[in-house]
Nucleic acid binder design. Structure first.
Lengths: 233, 233
DNA sequence: GCCTCATCAGTTGTCTGATGACTGCGCAAT
DNA sequence: ATTGCGCAGTCATCAGACAACTGATGAGGC
């Protein structure tokens, strides 16, 4: 009985998207004209147009003025993180696992490819975090900056983009997430710096395997901390 | 003099998005009501509503019926693959590197967590590809299906989503990409089946390290094939 | 004093009808 | 055969009205 929850426009958009995905309308096909859609869904043109505006912004269709609306070959299934998903602790855990895979590889590539500039950038961030007081103030931000610098040093644009992508989740702003995060002690920070140093050294030495291992170790530790947190709650 | 190129709605949407990104309206703030926006941009309500529908679908704002439209904290810088990027061979290469990192991890997780059903699903796809004639007909599709099954077996939703995400690039439809792909010989298919078998066996045996290594080997091979192709062209 | 609930103003959601703008196609003129 | 024109189909935009929802205010009962 919760039909009021979703607006008509979004219902129509979802339905249309489904039909397109299902292949009812093939790529390149023209979908029914506005008037027909109005009749199909028993809604006004306003609603239909808003629904199509949504699909268009998602790249599922394109409108051609005076001609019609056509199904687009969608090359962007847009990997996106929704708030709800990011709110679930278990989802954050899974995201961390994904991140581990990517970053281990990034560390390996960085060891092979990092330029002098890349290394300097990584070292800069690392040095900043060596000051435990500064590190304690922005633990997540500095940690993230370190990892981002490595992703950049991998010379792989997608990895850098990927880190941008999950950044907002790693540095959570919502209270919910903060509450569910492990507490940060002085000892923990020291350990972090140590782990960072191992990664940095391996990359600087150009030892890809060692860099991968160090990164895996580092992320596994924080993954375990989260896991413990999860079973506690 | 290109004013006719973009629809009013998209112009308004872009402008509003810019203002939001720029911080004119802070997260949580209510943006001006529809009537005011109409006045600001000198457009009708239809246009404003379509623009807002776009922003909403992008997660930049949320509408609350009877209250207003509010700026969302957008946690999705939307990792998306654009057509142009996917067209560049070098970009495909980098995407493959990213994929390698994710899939190596997925294989390891699958070895630890795969259920009976998961294993059956992987084996089904593998068996299909064992018939070299069938494999030759849809080499990329079957290979992709195998990898997708493993990602699913990892028990990590994000990894499965990630594979969905890059699927369209791995199974390219555009002529451009096909032309730039390595040619597929009978020998190559046999080798693929062999590599797949190693991965499958390791996962079935629950040997995470072996699964990771097998997967890394498998993807490295195809990465090398692409690299060779790149220097040739 | 405090709680309950009806009412109201403000805002988004939906509907309707009309007009403008653009495209593709056929047809006529050359 | 080519060119140009007009027409029908379709999307884009406008204008106005009403419906539905929310949050705040204030009246009334306890």
């Amino acid at each position: 009985m919760r039909k009021r929850r979703d607006s008509l426009a979004s219902v129509v958009a979802k339905d249309l998207a489904e039909r397109i995905e299902r292949g009812d309308y093939a790529v390149g096909d023209k979908i029914p004209i506005e008037a027909q859609l109005c009749e199909m869904f028993n809604v006004s043109r306003t609603v239909v147009r808003e629904a199509i505006a949504t699909l268009r912004s998602e790249g599922l269709v394109t409108s051609r003025h005076g001609v019609g609306v056509f199904v687009e070959e969608r090359a962007n299934p847009a990997l996106s993180i929704t708030k709800e998903a990011a709110g679930e602790l278990s989802e954050v855990l899974e995201l961390l696992e994904l991140r581990l895979g990517v970053e281990v590889e990034a560390a390996g590539l960085a060891a092979r490819r990092a330029t002098e500039d890349d290394l300097r950038a990584i070292r800069d961030v690392f040095d900043k975090a060596c000051d435990l007081d500064a590190f304690a103030e922005q633990p997540r931000e500095l940690d993230y900056a370190f990892h981002l610098a490595i992703a950049r040093a991998s010379g792989n644009g997608w990895m850098a983009k990927f880190m941008d992508f999950i950044g907002p989740v790693i540095i959570p702003r919502s209270q919910l997430l903060h509450a569910s995060q492990p507490e940060i002690t002085r000892d923990y920070l020291r350990q972090m710096v140590d782990e960072h140093r191992r990664i940095l050294d391996a990359i600087a030495a150009g030892d890809a395997v060692a860099a991968q291992e160090a990164m895996r170790m580092h992320l596994s530790t924080s993954l375990d901390r989260y896991r413990k947190r999860l079973v506690e709650s």
